Computed example of a mutant assay.
Amino acid sequence: MARPDTGVRERLVSQSVTRVVDALAAANADALVVVGDRFDADLQYLARLGSFEARAAVVVTATEAVVCPPADPCSEQFTAPTTRFHETSKAAGIDRGVRPIDADDGAPVGERAAATITSLVGSNADVVVPRAVPHDAAVYLARAGHDVSSTAAVRDARVVKSPVEIDRLQATQSAAVTAMRAVFAILAACDVADASRSLRWQGDSLSADRLRREANSALARAGVDPAGNTAVRSPSTDDDALRAGEPIVVSLAPRGPAGYHGTLTRTVVVDGDGGWERRAHLAVESALAAGIETVDPGDPVSLLREEVAAEIGAYGFDPTLTDRTTGTTHAGGYGVGLARREQPAPDSSASLRPGTVLAVEASVRDPDHGAIRLRDLVVVRDSVVERLSECPTALASDRY
């Protein structure tokens, strides 16, 4: 799997730290501390450390950003990332540094973060941390005499993506589209058993689990990590063969080499005969298009969901249905980035700002027929909302 260019990492670190420094000034805080593992989106946003074991920390003040490596790092995994962080060019006068492990005799990372703050800004500092900071890290900060409060500064800074981040998201989404085409090529090549209507591919039964594994292989070939997010659903169970005439929902949410996610959901019916599936698909397809094409930059995020829901209702499906025993409909839009799902939330009243990247989704489910679901990744530009990567939305697998 390809690794992101070092120059790109440097630009991302500079931009991310500068945004948080601005937020610190606005909050009148002395320092921000983020403690987490390699999957912590806030930590990766600030430091771009890539893969590592255990937990690390980043301390940001008005003039300096310091990485505290794990207490027992694997040298091959962590030395290079921290060196890149240290060597990142200055932005707005902010120095980069790495606190050596031996400076604190191998103490836990939270304790070393507290010591870093004391050495940078003194004792009794006003420190802000994300709401999900590990409890022990908060205890170490308080024990060192610092006043600790929560902040959404990093989460909010991550909402608007830079051009570099959008490029990373687009690359991951393009890989998802490539994998989705491979999945539906398999479905288009299936044979249909006459009596059971079960699908067979390359001489064997095609179950949801087998198709999911093929989807993951396609994602890996495209250079992204399935990240455990791939799902294949149909009225048939995982152990049974998928069947012709039933809607098959394939959902992908891979993570790219730089940590940014894609998200893509499509529904197909092999050898279908129309009926409910066709009507539901028309509703969902039109709803997804309405959400993307009707909403403009500056509109509230929640308008995405409202437009999608209204279009579903226009096709005769009740957009308020939530009871799985009688049927459900769903409409929404939410942020995507270093986390599979992040701010803004679907019901947010915040304005759609240029640089925001969102998953837009629509679905209709019936207990007797299954589900029709579509999801795309879009970006808010200066004057338009558009898909990051094009992928057909057809109900027939041979249309991909």
Rank of each mutant, 00 (worst) to 15 (best):
28 N>Y: 08
29 A>P: 01
30 D>H: 08
31 A>M: 08
31 A>K: 06
31 A>L: 14
31 A>T: 11
32 L>A: 15
33 V>S: 11
33 V>C: 13
34 V>S: 03
35 V>A: 04
35 V>Q: 14
37 D>W: 09
37 D>M: 10
39 F>V: 01
39 F>L: 13
39 F>G: 09
40 D>I: 06
40 D>E: 12
40 D>G: 09
41 A>H: 08
41 A>Q: 14
43 L>Q: 07
43 L>E: 03
46 L>S: 05
46 L>I: 11
47 A>W: 08
47 A>V: 05
47 A>D: 08
47 A>Q: 05
47 A>I: 12
47 A>L: 08
48 R>G: 00
49 L>A: 06
50 G>K: 15
50 G>A: 12
50 G>P: 15
50 G>L: 05
51 S>L: 11
52 F>I: 03
53 E>A: 10
54 A>E: 08
54 A>H: 02
55 R>K: 04
55 R>L: 03
55 R>N: 02
57 A>S: 10
57 A>D: 05
57 A>K: 06
58 V>W: 08
59 V>G: 04
59 V>K: 12
60 V>S: 07
61 T>Y: 12
61 T>P: 10
61 T>E: 13
62 A>L: 15
62 A>K: 04
63 T>C: 01
64 E>R: 13
64 E>M: 06
65 A>Y: 13
65 A>R: 09
65 A>P: 15
65 A>G: 11
66 V>P: 01
66 V>C: 11
66 V>Q: 06
66 V>N: 09
67 V>G: 11
67 V>R: 10
67 V>D: 07
67 V>L: 09
68 C>D: 14
68 C>W: 11
68 C>T: 06
69 P>S: 01
69 P>N: 05
70 P>H: 02
70 P>T: 02
72 D>K: 12
72 D>V: 03
73 P>S: 02
73 P>D: 00
76 E>W: 12
77 Q>K: 01
77 Q>A: 06
78 F>L: 15
78 F>E: 00
79 T>H: 02
79 T>N: 13
81 P>M: 12
82 T>Y: 06
82 T>V: 15
82 T>S: 01
83 T>F: 04
83 T>G: 05
84 R>C: 01
86 H>A: 08
86 H>N: 11
86 H>Y: 13
88 T>I: 00
88 T>A: 15
89 S>N: 13
90 K>M: 14
91 A>G: 00
91 A>N: 07
91 A>E: 08
91 A>W: 10
92 A>E: 10
93 G>E: 07
93 G>C: 13
93 G>W: 00
94 I>D: 10
96 R>L: 03
99 R>N: 10
99 R>T: 02
99 R>F: 12
99 R>Y: 05
99 R>S: 12
100 P>C: 02
